[in-house]
Design a protein around this nucleic acid. Structure first.
Lengths: 150, 150
DNA sequence: GGAAATACGTCAGCCATATTGACATATTTT
DNA sequence: AAAATATGTCAATATGGCTGACGTATTTCC
């Protein structure tokens, strides 16, 4: 349990420092991340993923839009929807933020042995609420083989 | 990476809810946790672990002391030190907070197979800053065999 | 075609937790 | 005695959550 705390603390530290220079926070990173991985994400889906209120999301998302990191697109089938996309600028920032994290995960998995990826992913998934697991699996693209990405 | 977010989110959720009822927050839990596992912890050590400023710690620690969850003891060899301990009330609360978390981890490890514990711990440790690892190993009591606890 | 439900946005105020900077006190070290 | 250390505290500020209320555009349903 303590390990989980330390790992999360250090995992988050590098991007946090970069974000701070831009006047952003961790919340901005999370939003960029999920939009980046799921282009065309609806606002309501993002709220469900993050488990925050729309008011909380609102302020942070507004900053990202105003400063040109995120774009909104009107839904094709439902014009009430605002489908979220990263701009090239947003993609570039996300990339920069996550390079150190990806490297860190890759190193940790290498260090822990050949089938660490699978075991690690399975265990983390086991920590997620059982009711949520299916959705998380879908979101993370953990298909049959559970490969690619971290 | 997304998995890490979801796992951490759900791992934290139960104690958070209990704490909220007492008017406490996540910060109180972290402090109880580390004092609980390391009785006699010094304030400066706690600050280094949590990576927060003493002002931030101050308020939260004060509440825990004032409400009878934590005691301070004068250092034997150095009377400037305030060694931290849980009161019985503090131990009782910590226990209640962590029962669901321990169960959750146990289930996740079971689900992920026989040597999940070792692989999981190794991977998490790999995520920690290399410079910090030694200290974390010592703190978490991950001796040779890496057994007991989570 | 009009009412209700949905998707989203926004205003205002509150709380928890973190920050920096400055300063106080007791104690130990040099 | 002076300096360094361990801790505590005051004040101001920022971030990122929250609740509640309300507004608007659009879709759905009777």
């Amino acid at each position: 349990m303590e390990l989980l705390f330390f790992a999360y603390r250090d995992f988050i530290a590098e991007p946090d420092a970069m974000l701070a220079e831009l006047g952003f926070g961790r919340a901005h990173h999370r939003i960029l991340h999920f939009i980046g991985r799921h282009p065309g994400l609806r606002v309501s889906e993002l709220l469900a993923i993050l488990r925050i209120t729309k008011q909380s999301l609102g302020r942070v998302l507004r900053e990202l839009i105003d400063r040109g990191y995120v774009m909104q697109e009107e839904g094709a089938s439902d014009r009430r929807q605002r489908l979220l996309h990263l701009t090239p600028k947003g993609r570039e920032l996300l990339e920069r933020l996550e390079v150190p994290q990806i490297a860190r995960v890759a190193m940790a998995l290498k260090r822990a042995g050949p089938d660490a990826r699978k075991t690690f992913a399975e265990t983390l998934l086991g920590l997620v609420d059982p009711k949520e697991r299916q959705r998380v699996v879908a979101l993370c693209g953990l298909g049959a083989g559970a490969d690619a990405e971290e």
